[in-house]
């Protein structure tokens, strides 16, 4: 297990280094002076000169790349073009909002999706199963930002039950929770669909296994068999999907944060793009890649922990 975890971590480090290199190269490959591109047409010659110096543009590309990677490894993601603040600090300031949003959405999706999928499997081919199948597909096919717009239109603008925008008052948990409901629901819906379908099929597969038959013949109640024996096995594939899900939610959160005017990593990066503040864009993306890879590692390792076949592969 330790060997597997170490191996997986090393792959993850290689992936992050590759991704940071790719990000670096993309900026260098774009035609024109990167300093001018990053600062925009209104930049003064002195600003461009100082940016060129900071980006070490007069050095060779591999020296620049190594310096960039070294800085990232030390946690130095550069400085904001406008106010000289460290990018890492700016990212860490808004990151909790995104993590709470993504994590909350996953939890909500599991809380709705798992019972829905289990019920559909338990009452296979009934009307309940058919309704669940339809609802799952509908949820999967409605893009989260469209769900966000529709929820905003209904609950915030028309009914006025929930706030339209913002992350809530700092320190006021209840107020922040009210601001979280619609964005969280918009992001969760797609995953409710995925999880319900996944759980349904893995429950149906698990039901046919020997240990479940043994539990049933032992005289356990159907409910007990379902929750104690079937669901335990059926949840395993979901763990792997959740890792990927968390990573995707970070991406999906961008649009949701913008729609609900909510602080977060995506909102920060998007605003930085609008103000051509490229160090913030670059630093934000590095953190996003890191989080995405980390989520995948955690999912893989926990999957390997519960299923020995994975770590042997």
């Amino acid at each position: 297990m330790i060997v597997y975890t170490v191996r997986r971590l090393l792959t993850a480090v290689a992936t992050v280094i590759g991704a940071v290199t790719l990000l670096f190269l993309i900026i260098r490959l774009i035609p024109g002076d990167p300093a001018v591109v990053m600062l925009g047409p209104r930049a003064s010659p002195s600003m461009i000169a100082s940016m060129r110096e900071r980006m070490m543009l007069d050095e060779s590309v591999h020296v620049q790349l190594l310096a960039f990677l070294g800085n990232v490894l030390r946690g130095d993601l550069g400085r904001d073009v406008l106010n000289e603040l460290p990018v890492l600090g700016m990212v860490l300031d808004v990151l909790p909002f995104t993590i709470v949003l993504a994590f909350g959405s996953i939890v909500l999706a599991v809380l709705i999706g798992v019972p829905l999928g289990t019920l559909a499997a338990a009452y296979r081919n009934s009307w309940l199963d058919r309704v669940t199948a339809f609802v799952s597909v509908a949820f999967i096919t409605v893009p989260p930002f469209v769900a966000g717009l529709l929820l905003l239109l209904l609950f915030a603008v028309e009914l006025r039950w929930l706030p339209v925008s913002g992350g809530g008052v700092r320190g006021d948990v209840l107020n922040q929770a009210r601001h979280l409901i619609l964005p969280m629901l918009a992001l969760a819906l797609t995953w409710v669909g995925y999880i319900a379908r996944l759980i349904r099929s893995s429950v149906l597969e698990e039901i046919t296994k020997d240990h479940v038959r043994t539990a049933t013949s032992k005289g356990l109640s159907p409910g007990r068999v379902l929750f104690k024996h079937v669901l335990r096995g059926a949840l395993i594939p979901t763990i792997a999907v959740l890792g990927v899900g968390f990573g995707n939610l970070l991406g999906g959160a961008v649009l949701i944060e913008i729609i609900f005017n909510r602080p977060g990593l995506g909102f920060l990066i998007f605003n930085a793009i609008e103000s051509r503040n490229y160090p913030v864009v670059q630093g934000g993306l590095v953190v996003a890649v890191f989080l995405y890879t980390l989520a995948n590692v955690i999912a893989d390792v926990s999957y390997g922990f519960v299923d020995p076949r994975i770590r042997e592969a």
């Binding site: 790719l22 990000l23 961008v254 990066i269």
Partner: peptide, 9 residues
Amino acid sequence: VVRSFPALL
């Protein structure tokens, strides 16, 4: 590496 980028960002 390519998959580790949140595509939209």
